[in-house]
Design a protein around this nucleic acid. Structure first.
Lengths: 156, 156
DNA sequence: GTCGATGCAAAGGCTTTGCACAGCC
DNA sequence: GGCTGTGCAAAGCCTTTGCATCGAC
């Protein structure tokens, strides 16, 4: 009854349990990667390379290959969420209920990114999912736009 | 005054003009790539490789490198739109006003993809863009979900 | 002690780039 | 005819994988 919440979210403390259930192990490396994401908070998105760099910087030994493997594992467990930020590489962030409704406003010219939330978007996503009989996991709105500076220069 | 429409959309017939304005040329290859997208319609998203394959199949000689170059060019001109479908490679589709409000419902397990539109999402995107002073170009909602089949199997 | 995880380095996709030739304006 | 675009093949990312060793359970 206390196992897996409906959204796929899991408590940090349940990491070991969840791994054990799958016949997998809690290694320092996996813990370090997850800790890093919890340390930086829900809003931040990191690439595999950035995760690796940060861990190495703080003397936490992990190989890049393991970072890739771990990111994939934690995502498949629902602890991390893979993002699709336009014009960027693959990025990951901590999953959480908040992120079911987590949106990006991106300047396609300079790359400036702003984040926002919107209940109405989530509602629309739920409506669409319902219409097709899907079960909604996450709802990400990418708004591609021009920031004020770049819009001004485009006018040129 | 008849130059660039506010959305960055351009008529096929203006392809030559737009290219000329930039000191670039209308080549058969560029025309073929754009034609292909117009032939298949607004809803379809193709990868570079798929574009290449389809052109080669219909005897239209273009190299893969040129396809990549052309996709980038046409995107920068606003004629094509780059998509970020989760767990997939880069894909392109014909840009159009319709696509300012063009959303995807994706099963994260089997990859099944459905499309839908939603005025309320576009409204939310516009509100967010406005709040930060951005000029909205496009609004893409990616709903990550489980399709009925996969949801049933996950319950397992 | 067993079996999964790690690290390293090599292999693998996909995408971009250098260069000589072709062809649009 | 000049200068941009193309094709080819090589180079470049980013990511995954094979294999021997390490270490969690």
């Amino acid at each position: 009854m206390v196992n897996t919440p409906p959204t796929g979210l899991a408590q940090p403390s349940s990491l070991r349990t969840t791994l054990n259930d799958r016949g997998q192990r809690l290694t320092p490396q996996r813990q370090r990667v997850l800790d890093l994401f919890e340390r930086i908070g829900e809003g931040s998105h990191l690439s595999a390379e950035e995760v690796h760099l940060r861990l190495v910087r703080s003397q936490e030994r992990v190989s890049l290959a393991t970072v890739y493997r771990t990111l994939r594992l934690l995502s498949s467990m629902g602890l991390l969420q893979e993002l699709e930020l336009p014009e960027g590489g693959r990025r990951f962030e901590l999953a959480g209920d908040a992120h079911r409704d987590h949106h990006h406003l991106l300047c396609v010219r300079c790359g400036r990114t702003e984040e926002f939330e919107s209940g109405s978007v989530l509602a629309a996503g739920e409506a669409a999912a319902g219409a097709f009989g899907f079960r909604l996991l996450e709802c990400v709105l990418n708004v591609r736009a021009l920031c004020p500076n770049c819009a001004a220069e485009e006018q040129g």
